[in-house]
Nucleic acid binder design. Sequence first.
DNA 1: GCCGTTTTTTGATCTAGAACAAGGACCAGC
DNA 2: GCTGGTCCTTGTTCTAGATCAAAAAACGGC
Lengths: 230, 230
Amino acid sequence: MDAAFLSEDDRRTIKRSVLCSAMGDGDFAELLASASVRSLKRSEYLFEQGDPATNLFLIVDGWVQITRDDRDGSHTLIAAFHKGDSLAESAAFLGKVYPASAQAMTDLRVVAMRASLILDIIERDRDVLAQTLASIYKKMHVLVDEIEWLKTSTLRERLARFLLEQTDGTAEAVELTLPYSKSLIAAKLGTSPQQLSRTFTELQQHGVRVKGAVVQLDSTATLRSLIAKS
Amino acid sequence: MDAAFLSEDDRRTIKRSVLCSAMGDGDFAELLASASVRSLKRSEYLFEQGDPATNLFLIVDGWVQITRDDRDGSHTLIAAFHKGDSLAESAAFLGKVYPASAQAMTDLRVVAMRASLILDIIERDRDVLAQTLASIYKKMHVLVDEIEWLKTSTLRERLARFLLEQTDGTAEAVELTLPYSKSLIAAKLGTSPQQLSRTFTELQQHGVRVKGAVVQLDSTATLRSLIAKS
DNA sequence: GCCGTTTTTTGATCTAGAACAAGGACCAGC
DNA sequence: GCTGGTCCTTGTTCTAGATCAAAAAACGGC
């Protein structure tokens, strides 16, 4: 887990996050100055259940899985996060311990920010406070809409959407590497590995070629049209 | 829409809400002192799309539906809220206009709180700020879990849960009146009226008797056992 | 390269719920 | 009381996806 630097693009990702979007440029620079960038190899732990929580994290690139380690030694997958998501907010704001572990599922870059500094910045400017609260609530509504969509969408649609999320949305034909095993993707999409496999086969008709963990999308536009509804 | 007073129980409901749970007793008393209680009859509007948003609302009793009024005159149901939920947070914190309308689906009591006063209270005490942020994030995780549960549960489970939500969770046998039309309940549960009707029939085996909008639950424990999973 | 383990794919069957259709109940106005 | 509208229920058919089972790839260690 070594230090690294931030590209201009990374900064934009961070600035767009819920907690930073309300800050002015000065505040944001101050926050970044004291933040540290961490690079992790796949399967390293970012933090473990029970560690004291002083930092919260923002993912710049890669995937993180959150698991709860039960007393009986089994690990339960709680959630998976990627680029632009933040982690461990409530534990960090309260200064408690992390209630679950976070492990890199891919090579990973995150920014670690001191929760106390974020609180300082928010506290000293009423506009920042108002906008931060507003943007968290907005995020909440977006999340609800999103998951609501999951309820009514078919597996084909969900998979198409998942694949599109892995691209940066510009190119028409893309080759990408799946961020983690197909069984996990199945879990994330709320289905079984079998069903996922069938659905990949089905998507071949729409220009999706799969070879191991490498997926070729011939036409992102076609995929997008599979989703467009609501 | 006339003024009314708050019972001890109402106060508890409010205090447990996300935005108030972090406050000290003094702050909470101050907030309540300036808050107004509004009673609405079924189908009255609490606010309408486009009204300037200075207040946010906390439901003390009853149901509210949020609808977006499209330019073509149609109303789209966005969400439905009940006891303990708060409404219109982001619009109020930003001092914008309400982006949708809120209408009472039942006789309704809400508390209207000035967003600016809430900001004052949060701003002047760092602990309140930290705990408020933490509790909003916690709420977000709960919400996500809940909706995630919806994805994997059957309609029978969802309906059982919905019925239990209408009770106060104490008595074993209850008679309740459905808060709104069955078609709307169907929509809220993510299904069609037909399917809902069948499922009600199916639940007769588990001590649920339906007569119009009146439902008798013979055994809440039985219903609870239908849900218990995960 | 070979072997055991894990992951993925394919096959076949079964079920919840969607979709289409039509009958019945309730209500308001006349 | 009759009549037209709305809401609810019942009947039937059809499909996405779950589930059980097993073959086939991929992977890590030696």
